[in-house]
Nucleic acid binder design. Sequence first.
DNA 1: AATAAATTGTTGCATAATGCAACTGATTCA
DNA 2: TGAATCAGTTGCATTATGCAACAATTTATT
Lengths: 148, 148
Amino acid sequence: MNNTTAQAATLRELLRTLIRKLGVLERSEAGCCDMTLSQCNALIEVGRAGVLSVNQLADRLNLDKSTASRVSDKLVLDGQLLRQEDPNDRRYVVLKLTERGSQTYANMENRMTAYFEEVMAGVDPAERTAMLRGLQTLDAALNSDSCC
Amino acid sequence: MNNTTAQAATLRELLRTLIRKLGVLERSEAGCCDMTLSQCNALIEVGRAGVLSVNQLADRLNLDKSTASRVSDKLVLDGQLLRQEDPNDRRYVVLKLTERGSQTYANMENRMTAYFEEVMAGVDPAERTAMLRGLQTLDAALNSDSCC
DNA sequence: AATAAATTGTTGCATAATGCAACTGATTCA
DNA sequence: TGAATCAGTTGCATTATGCAACAATTTATT
């Protein structure tokens, strides 16, 4: 169907520009916290989850476990994360935010919240729900596809 | 307005998962072509533009010009790009796809086209246009914001 | 016409990320 | 009890990245 082809092309183009813009946003955010992007992403995931193992962190970030191990090492060294032994299974490490890490996380959350509220405020109220639903539709479609 | 706050939070979460999924897709695509992600992105931009200068490539990829210079160097070395002197201004380099680069580009385009058609086919036809419009709305909102 | 300023692209340097394979220690399974 | 599996670490090699300084070229100024 010709229509799907054209729509698929439009989708790709929209996603391409979206990725670029969000990439800029992410890097700017990481810069604000004096961290690398990877460290930022790791801190956010631990912040959102409360506690994570190294393997869980790797899964969430789509990284090799060795990479997750190193980035969490760095964050522990910087005082942003705490590494604890799991009392139930000593193979496991439990990663959680330190007090300082919580501050950093809250700072990032606040800035990102403010940013996206601003973005949302720039959208016609009548279109906001439709926009979100569109993203939810895409999310579901990507889930059911075999690549992601 | 409480509504904007909740909607902003939903937007962030949707974008977070979208970035993760598309990141996996990008890396998988780069792997298919036996290239690094950065090289892939550079080739795609040159392919889409026809010709680009190094600075233009840097702008499109949101990279430092030194990085753009190196990644295009690599692609020239691999025979995917051709670097020519600009006859009008010898400061400029003109980057374009070689025959081999055109093949690589076409392969990537075909695979991505097929993938997104599959994604689109998984969306209810009645929702496709709304989904695309939602992404277009977001795109416009991000453009008018000061960060990107 | 000569000089200064700006632009393009390259290179040196330093930092960081990344994945694979191999390894250690711990737990589970047969 | 020994083998298999799991979690996490480490060595290794590769790649990406941006900043600053530089050379060559073009444009602007005097």
